[in-house]
Design a protein around this nucleic acid. Structure first.
Lengths: 361, 361
DNA sequence: GTTGATCTGAGGTACGTACCTCAGCTATCA
DNA sequence: TGATAGCTGAGGTACGTACCTCAGATCAAC
């Protein structure tokens, strides 16, 4: 049997109350006594029983994800993962919800943030385009005692500690490297498409992309970023314009998390099989594109990891714990046809019915 | 507050005892009553409090990883992850150990397996080359009540349910695709190196590799597999022979998890920068090779995931639970210079001192 | 040596579930 | 009608930690 606090008290020659004070960093214990207890902890190899601690605390954590309202496949993925995580962690006293926010208007987002009360949630994971208003509102929220982490995009270097997502500079560099190698020395232009360049993540990806491309692949020239603004007609128009004006396009980099519109537009304009195409995020659309050869590689961040990592980070904040940041690093995944897992992403078809309990025989 | 069993009892109009019987699938409850309780569960949204349940059960899980004795960097990685996982899960009543076993001799491995008693461990994660003796010993062990999962390699299709690791056929295919694309239409031969072709994983990788290469890249011919048997001198000899006999080698695929010897041998024989090289597993050696350009891509499986997934699987077996297999799928990661995380793998330098508790101020 | 502040011990309750016993209840069948 | 088996309720203890109160001990400074 593992030693308990009682054993620890005996080993340290103090009472249970003192052990408790030391373990929970409560005041009113002499340094010498603290040391004695710590020594005993090492000696008998005491490890706090988390189950018991959680039970005793009967602590509840209520976290809320704020995601843009747009009907994006990637956002849908995230929502599904939030739902799953909620189910999985409900048994551990967590309640994880999500709320839609404006996809663009910083004022509206800031308003939404400021409306959040300390007594309804303990933490927020926010996915929103960069803006001073949002940043300030987030800071205000923190001051109220609601912890905030920034998901995927993140605000102007508040602190890296609050960010959950991939290194977008590196992701852009990865895209450039793949295009550079796949294109095989061909001379030509590279089309770059994004939903908007107002987002911090797009800007960073672009910088990383350009850096590698100009340094290592003089045969390739990156064209100015096209912005779809999530509008299908517009996407088609600007992309077809671009393709018609630059017949020497040999590759395309779709930077935004919603690759559907750009991919559809490209597909209508040219034979994507002959074009080297790199897109972001694994969704049903990019998965199909990967399988058909329409896309050569997908650069992805695991949506489940994003959600779980956010939750762990928020929870650590609530407990005033530090966290192993290196273990929470979100990987930049490179996906091609061959390393797509059969189940990956196809999970969307799950019905969300009765997963909560396991009495289904 | 979340509803408790007491609330559930009230809602279902039964006693706590009956609720308990239903929740824990104990006999002696009429079907009708069971249904009533289940209905109440749905209605009030009852979710078992895991902390309380674990505490009440005061269940301990003792799992042991059996890893080959060789001093491999990849194995060292795994050991470190086991150590970490043990620390992280100790608070949840898990005790995760590891034991070295013969790296080759099936008889010795089988003997080791058969020596394991039910009262010392609840489950085993076994990494061993395929052989009938080992397979039988594993089955015997299961009959004794010790759960067994097969790590990375796996035995002849016992059951996919017992396997933790990547799809090696797909991994080989991935390697072939990368080489095919990176080589840019060049005509030539591809060298294939492994530690041994007796391992199931190597065979499967080879098959996946050949399949894609012969189908999609007629410009490339894969050479017969070279086996280093973990011997440095031998590795150098066979590889230099191969290189001297086939001057038109344009690429190399290092299949085994220990890439050190083959990479060193290749480096001594030829300029690896001009060769397209794909290796397996992220270790200090492959990481350096990736950064220097000696290796073009690394195909990896996350060692931490391997360990944690094994533990989850074993635990599910102990609890007689089914598990979401799709969530336990180990991803085939493609790593290039650009998407290497700064922290990734460099963790080896950690001292393993006082991570067990968090009183370090 | 007294006062006050600081530290420590003893003992309690609470968290939500698991698992036990035993008494009593309800159908079923002889 | 009574015996039997199957079902249900009442009540208890246990798990290990958190957090509370209050009394008593210790130590410093005066």
């Amino acid at each position: 049997m593992r030693p308990t606090t009682k054993d620890l008290a005996k080993a340290a020659g103090v009472s249970l109350a003192t052990v408790d004070r030391v373990l929970n960093k409560r005041p009113g214990v002499r340094k010498k006594t603290v040391e004695a207890v710590k020594k005993a902890i090492e000696e008998i190899g005491f490890v706090r029983n988390l189950s018991a601690a959680n039970l005793a605390k009967s602590r509840q954590y209520r976290f809320r994800f704020l995601l843009p309202r747009r009907g994006d496949l990637f956002i849908a993925e995230l929502r599904d993962r939030i739902f799953e995580t909620n189910i999985g962690l409900a048994a551990e006293g967590m309640e994880i919800t999500h709320q839609e926010i404006s996809q663009v208007d910083p004022h509206l987002i800031a308003q939404t943030l400021l409306k959040i009360r300390r007594d309804e949630v303990d933490g927020i994971a926010l996915m929103a385009p960069e803006s001073p208003q949002v940043r300030d509102a987030a800071i205000r929220l923190q001051e109220k005692g609601v912890h905030v982490v920034h998901l995927i995009s993140g605000q102007q270097k508040l602190s890296d500690m609050d960010f959950v997502g991939i290194d977008n500079h590196a992701a852009g560099a990865t895209a450039a490297r793949l295009i550079g190698r796949f294109v095989c020395g061909l001379q030509g232009k590279v089309m770059v498409v994004s939903e908007t360049m107002n987002a911090r993540d797009s800007l960073e990806r672009r910088r990383g992309f350009d850096q590698v491309l100009t340094r290592d692949y003089p045969n390739l020239t990156a064209l100015p970023s096209l912005e779809t603004h999530g509008d299908e007609a517009r996407a088609y128009e600007i992309i077809s314009n671009m393709i018609n004006n630059s017949p020497d396009i040999v590759a395309a980099y779709v930077m935004s998390s919603e690759a559907r519109l750009p991919l559809n537009a490209v597909a209508r304009q040219t034979d994507p099989q002959t074009l080297t195409v790199i897109a972001h995020e694994l969704t049903d659309r990019t998965r199909k594109a990967l399988v058909s050869g329409e896309v050569d590689a997908v650069i992805a961040q695991d949506s489940g990891h994003l959600v779980r990592s956010s939750v762990r980070l928020l929870r650590a904040r609530c407990d005033k714990r530090e966290i192993m940041r290196s273990q929470e690093q979100i990987r930049i995944e490179i996906l091609i046809q061959e390393n797509l897992l059969p189940a990956q992403c196809a999970l969307r078809s799950n019905d969300h019915g009765s997963v909560a309990n396991s009495f289904d025989d």
